[in-house]
Design a protein around this nucleic acid. Structure first.
Lengths: 227, 227, 227, 227
DNA sequence: TATGAATGAGGCTTCATTCAT
DNA sequence: TATGAATGAAGCCTCATTCAT
């Protein structure tokens, strides 16, 4: 984490023990978020980290901050992966590979999924990642269409929506049969090939609409995830 | 409801007022489940029904029972729809129409979605429906493949998984742009056409595995939906 | 309480045990409010009443509701006392007597004081009482001035302000020497007699300004009393 | 502060940085006490001072010590003002002027008010000031009575009590209408003039009783101001 | 029987104070 | 020495579930 592009600057030289606690909290949160999702009780996280609950509050004033910290690496890595994908010659392959990489990370992580299907309360880093992700996908979609691999009547938003839908199911599928999501991802992509083109019954979502829809998914019972 | 195929045996002649209460509870739960999902506080349901909460417990010992009762009609209707679909000549069209019908119903009903993506705590009726649904889809898939419309390397489970994934997102998408799910459903089907066939990287889930995966989706934080 | 003018209608036939609990809660709150003021922890009140804390919340959704209930009798009695005072021939004596009556009630009750010096969060009944109190004082002041007993250059607001100031100190003074507040009240009134008239260095507060000032007193550190 | 009569002995040559910290803490506390009263969270004070909270504890073992330090200057000034007042020819005018001066200082300072109405947890300096204040008032009262301006049946304690009562309300009144307290102070004094004399219904408090009463006012909910 | 009521555990925060660097 | 950090005890509130009428 310390040598990643994003992080490092923000923490003004934390004391050794504090740093240890911080790391312990993040580690505990990472585990529990992965196992149980982003709504895990904060007290549980503190307990697993072996610190008092107030320590958690001192380090992370809000749940969002903790989430942001926990997923910093993942997100960071996401940026790198995105950049790399954009450099691919064959846009279609790059896109598929990019997505496989992401799903690989999601497969064992409920929290990451919730994050991916959540536009709402997750701080600037995540927003940045989402933006970057959208850019990556947009560019690859455009190029894949130019290269004749992807059907011309779909948009990046179509793909992103499908991926969000699938992504939400990945951990559960992976829990039952580890690699099974690869098959469903492949089927999703098969519907987006040039050869698969058929008239579509409704216009695509705009990016804004997509974000709103994802945000909505993140708010069970109309309220934000409680934190 | 009383004349449906499923119910009737189970309730041994309820007193008139008890019956009224039961109906009121179901109606209230139907509304709140649709609006807020299946985790709506039970007290809220009782209040909206205008009865005491203990009455709710007396009528429905567990949240599951209430869910089962609430969705009985829907499920019932699902059976009918399934039967009808099976009678279609053109299996592909029948399948598409069948699914559109289901999604239509889901679009405004959070609870129904949760149910659809939930194999766990929902009682025998729902199990029966799921079985029936599986049968319908299996048969239509088989026939669509025989008729050359659907690619031969996919299974009913593949389709059901994709539908579950999509279905979970339908209400949110519909909340933003009402008919938008039609586009994504179409894309899903486009990947299943005979022409779209490509080698797939993993074997399909068995029905049992699919059920387990769906069950897993229904258990946020590792526990059953809280009730 | 049941036969008072205000109450009685509002509670739609509470069950016997609930009524008992309600009374116990009110009694416990009355004691604790009197001893410790209006910010007593609600859990303490529940404990002293011998009920679970949630029972308190069921009966009184907010601290204000509880306050309102606790002081209902007192307030109610205040109305009666006010009416009676207005019927007095000698306005000055009536005013003095009225105030002595009020202070008598305040002497052992911190909560009542806080209430009296609080314009803010206390529900409609208290607002009504304050209005009524203001009316009583206004009328008696006017008549006492007409009768030549009270100096003409003071207003009801002047008196109310002085009474609020004094009232806040009554319980503490009474805790040390029971009747001592009578002396200070007398001194306050002595400054309001016709003979005491002297040019005053600033205009009186309007009623609205008085209310604002009292409200301000009720909000330590800028926030409302926390409940 | 360093050259005041009181301080200086107690701090055995503080190191330069320590001294700076001490001053910063006092300055921060002065501001926050004035704005929010004496119960301001200590961490807030340390933060505003730009030092660690433990530093605060090292410098001031208890909240009282900090209070004492903060109000040292004010008190110091109080002594001077008192001395000056005692030198006045016309005792009545001197008394009025003295009080106006004090109220002027209180009007924008919640903490000072709380202090003035607090006999308890404020250390020797404050005790000294209170003693001095009492002396000043006693002497002026005696002389004003001798000079025939003040009624003979009141005591310094009567006046002090009234002033405490009024003083507690000054900031709130001043928050609404800046100079309004002058009117109420004038009314208070009008009741103490020789011409206003009337039989009083109770004996005056002794100094000790007055102190106890003021101490009582300072203890909301029966406990000391929380620190 | 139906019901309102009661419960207690659990989640979130805040703060005075002590500890370790 | 000065400091940031850690702590744990309260306080508030919500809900599923059991109890008593």
């Amino acid at each position: 984490m310390s040598k990643s592009g994003f992080s490092g600057q923000r923490t003004p030289a934390l004391r050794a023990d504090a740093r240890r606690n911080r790391e312990a909290l993040i580690a505990a949160a990472r585990e529990l978020f992965a196992e149980q999702g982003l709504e895990t009780p904060l007290d549980d996280i503190a307990r697993r980290a072996g610190v008092g609950n107030a320590t958690l509050y001192r380090r992370f004033a809000t749940r969002e901050e903790l989430i942001e910290a926990v997923f910093h690496d993942l997100l960071d890595e996401g940026l790198r992966t995105g950049e790399e994908a954009r450099r691919g010659e064959d846009a279609w392959s790059a896109l598929v590979g990019y997505m496989e990489g992401i799903f690989e990370g999601l497969a064992a992580n409920r929290g990451a999924i919730e994050l991916m299907t959540t536009a709402v309360p997750a701080g600037p880093t995540l927003a940045e990642l989402r933006r970057h992700n959208h850019e990556t996908v947009s560019e690859l979609v455009r190029r894949a269409q130019e290269q004749g691999a992807m059907r011309a009547d779909v948009t990046a938003e179509d793909l992103l929506f499908g991926l969000a839908a699938l992504g939400r199911c990945v951990p559960s599928a992976a829990a039952v049969v580890p690699g099974s999501w690869r098959r469903h991802l492949a089927l999703l992509f098969d519907g987006l090939r040039a050869e698969a083109a058929r008239p579509l019954p409704a216009p695509p979502l705009t990016f804004r609409q997509l974000e709103d829809a994802l945000a909505d998914m993140a708010a069970p019972r109309g309220r934000a995830p409680q934190g």
